[in-house]
Simulated scan of single mutants.
Amino acid sequence: MSDWLKMLLLGLLSIVFGVFILGAPVVASIAVTAITGILLLISGGLQLVGGFTVEGTGNKILSILMGAIMLFLGWSFLAHPLQGTISLAMLILILFMAGGIARVILSFQMRGTAYFWPTLISGVLSIVLAGIIWTNAAAEPAWLLNLVGILLGIEMLFNGFGLLFAALFMRSAEENT
């Protein structure tokens, strides 16, 4: 399977998930927080167990400490989903900003093609979404819970369309070479 086709399929999948997330943003926010908590618990447990098998006192201490921190964070996300969602909102802010900047840079590599403007707009809108989270970070947690789900759904759509445009650009570049 060619790279552009893989990117196209990934873009379509991202769009489908974005639509599902927008259908139930609060549920999506809580689900993401719960999944993050579970993954942190699993990672922390494995890190803790692995800490007893590594060589060197410093490595043991660091590994066990990291495992304990991940276990605590996982438990915290599951026990306090609203606070966990606020923490994830800050992480999402960083990811939206990074993804938006990356798409803006990618768009300038596509200058002169039909994909320049859609990719540029996708990147700029991701940066705007990061700004919305930043300006509303101190808002009511329940409102932020809904906002995170909505923004995550919108970002999935933007990401999906960005991947579609990049895939079509890659396909046209392959055909022209």
Score class of each variant (00 low, 15 high):
residue 26 V to F: 08
residue 22 L to Y: 00
residue 5 L to Q: 07
residue 35 I to T: 11
residue 167 A to W: 00
residue 124 V to N: 12
residue 142 A to M: 15
residue 81 P to H: 03
residue 41 L to C: 07
residue 61 I to T: 01
residue 170 M to H: 04
residue 41 L to R: 05
residue 44 G to E: 06
residue 117 W to T: 14
residue 29 S to L: 03
residue 18 G to I: 01
residue 156 M to Y: 11
residue 49 V to P: 05
residue 126 S to R: 14
residue 51 G to N: 02
residue 155 E to Q: 14
residue 115 Y to V: 11
residue 59 N to S: 08
residue 164 L to C: 08
residue 55 E to D: 09
residue 86 I to R: 12
residue 95 L to N: 07
residue 104 V to F: 00
residue 20 F to G: 05
residue 53 T to H: 11
residue 118 P to F: 01
residue 22 L to Q: 01
residue 4 W to S: 02
residue 147 L to F: 07
residue 29 S to F: 03
residue 125 L to A: 09
residue 140 E to I: 15
residue 117 W to K: 15
residue 123 G to T: 10
residue 45 G to V: 05
residue 166 A to S: 11
residue 175 E to N: 12
residue 56 G to T: 02
residue 11 G to L: 00
residue 61 I to F: 05
residue 72 F to E: 09
residue 28 A to L: 01
residue 170 M to I: 06
residue 28 A to V: 04
residue 158 F to Y: 12
residue 3 D to Y: 03
residue 143 W to D: 15
residue 81 P to M: 01
residue 164 L to V: 03
residue 38 I to F: 11
residue 4 W to N: 01
residue 138 A to L: 15
residue 29 S to T: 07
residue 32 V to L: 11
residue 59 N to F: 05
residue 158 F to N: 08
residue 17 F to K: 04
residue 25 P to A: 01
residue 122 S to D: 13
residue 138 A to K: 14
residue 36 T to G: 08
residue 10 L to G: 04
residue 80 H to Q: 14
residue 131 G to N: 09
residue 56 G to S: 00
residue 167 A to L: 00
residue 33 T to E: 14
residue 37 G to Y: 03
residue 92 I to H: 09
residue 73 L to T: 07
residue 43 S to D: 08
residue 68 A to Y: 04
residue 105 I to P: 10
residue 72 F to R: 07
residue 156 M to H: 11
residue 104 V to L: 00
residue 11 G to Q: 00
residue 169 F to N: 12
residue 95 L to Q: 10
residue 121 I to V: 13
residue 70 M to Y: 14
residue 32 V to G: 10
residue 80 H to E: 15
residue 153 G to M: 06
residue 5 L to A: 05
residue 35 I to G: 09
residue 155 E to R: 15
residue 158 F to C: 06
residue 126 S to Q: 15
residue 70 M to K: 10
residue 125 L to Y: 12
residue 89 A to Y: 07
residue 61 I to M: 07
residue 55 E to Y: 10
residue 67 G to A: 02
residue 128 V to R: 12
residue 46 L to G: 13
residue 70 M to N: 13
residue 172 S to A: 13
residue 66 M to P: 14
residue 147 L to T: 10
residue 124 V to Y: 12
residue 30 I to P: 03
residue 128 V to H: 11
residue 114 A to H: 13
residue 160 G to K: 01
residue 111 R to C: 08
residue 11 G to T: 00
